[in-house]
């Protein structure tokens, strides 16, 4: 079953074609990695799917329903959540409060007198933080965290919305190399258990080949290749253009 379907998405900023005819079907339950050089339009794609940017042409369908034109807030209600390349946290709140606010957003925001940190939400926030191994910093203010912790908190907030589809923009950038694999393992376990479909932008090919079901290669606003990591990551053109490795076969092809 196709959960998300993009057809002919186009969006240019001035002369820069950030999306130049994107066609992509995301299958229900899969982990789809997006790779490609900086400026290829990966973030722009996520921005279009989450309602932050409106494509100049093309359509997006989610669960059979057209998405283009809906505000981010509406898309969250439909089950689409995202995390950010640069973490977007509520800086004056603690880590636990950041996550609890996401839970409240899902379950009942409009109560002026019941506390945000009421027991049920507090417990759920603690639970999510434990899954991300963030329990130790639950009471720290978000503006005191290091890059890796901010990144994880940012993702935890998206997960707390209990989405069906999550889009993560470079979830492991800023995370220390030594922790990368274990963090992604955790993340994948959490998302798989909840049956969440994931689209994530990733630069680490090791992470991609281990955890992605399919890989989409972005290049100048287009999808240059799409398929299982085993096939895509050995494609000489991809190796040369995206990863910057010259191979014998690559030379021959060029």
């Amino acid at each position: 079953m196709i959960l998300l379907s993009a057809k002919g998405l186009k969006l240019a900023f001035g002369g820069v074609k950030a999306a130049d005819g994107i066609d992509l079907d995301v299958r229900n339950g899969e982990f789809l990695a997006i790779i490609g050089p900086n400026g290829a339009g990966k973030t722009t794609f996520i921005n279009m799917v989450t309602g932050y940017l409106t494509p100049q042409a093309g359509e997006i369908h989610y669960d059979g329903q057209p998405l283009v034109g809906l505000a981010p807030r509406r898309l969250v209600r439909l089950g689409i959540a995202r995390s950010f390349q640069l973490p977007q946290l509520f800086l004056e709140h603690t880590v636990a409060e950041n996550v609890a606010l996401a839970i409240a957003a899902r379950e009942g925001l409009w109560s002026p007198i019941r506390p945000l940190m009421r027991s049920a939400w507090r417990a759920e926030a603690d639970d999510i933080l434990a899954q991300f191994d963030l329990s130790d910093i639950a009471e720290r203010r978000a503006d005191t965290l290091n890059e890796g912790a901010r990144k994880l908190t940012d993702i935890a907030m998206a997960v707390a919305l209990k989405p069906r589809l999550i889009l993560m923009d470079e979830p492991t950038s800023g995370v220390a190399a030594s922790e990368k694999i274990s963090i992604v393992e955790t993340l994948v376990r959490v998302l798989r258990t909840a049956g969440v479909t994931a689209v994530f932008v990733e630069h680490d090919m090791d992470v991609v080949s281990r955890f992605a079901d399919r890989v989409a290669v972005w290049s100048q606003g287009k999808i240059a290749a799409l398929g299982p990591p085993g096939a895509v990551l050995t494609d000489p053109n991809v190796l040369r253009d995206v990863i910057g490795i010259e191979t014998e076969a690559g030379h021959a092809a060029a």
Binding site: R73, V76, F90, L91, E92, A102, L109, L161
Partner: peptide
């Protein structure tokens, strides 16, 4: 006050 844009992405 600190991150208005994120609120919208949480459905608030």
């Amino acid at each position: 006050k600190t991150r208005e844009a994120r609120l919208e992405f949480m459905g608030i």
